[in-house]
Amino acid sequence: MTTHSILLSGFGGQGILFAGKLLAYMGLIMDKNVSWLPSYGPEMRGGTANCNVIISDDTIGSPIINNPSTLICMNKPSFNKFVPMVEKNGLVVLDSSLIDIKGERGDINFVEIPATQIATDNQHPKLANMVMLGRTLKELNLGDESVVISALKKTIPNRKIEMLEVNKKAILAGYNFT
């Protein structure tokens, strides 16, 4: 029985909530229990945004993540705020294009990826969230390509469906980053 408690965090506009929704849909497609809880309020209006995604074989109790097993981190304030909360042996995936701090905790696994740089090099700077997600999926060994594509179809609105390919490409770029 596995439970992934994934906290995604960054600035408003980086697609934190979208990446979380994609993760939640992946869980749903894999027949897991899932919950998605966004931060809402003044902080999301131009400030930091975060989102709690739980994917579990068990029934989900509280949707609030106090100690994430995985932290996806896309800005410095979130890094400083949330790294101390990550559970022991947990995972932190951080965008090293935006966060130049080194993680000091020895009991968690830090994975750095210059996601914003990779996304910019691919002509889609706004898809750094998908690059981050791809790297995380690899680390967690979560889902496969067909699950990602099905989840993208559920998450991208119909009027923007032409964005599916570039999103997929960005996820793959993160997944294959070494």
Partner: peptide, 10 residues
């Protein structure tokens, strides 16, 4: 409440 209103579940 605000959590149940804002959260997504299947």
């Amino acid at each position: 409440d605000g959590i149940l209103g804002q959260m997504m579940e299947p």
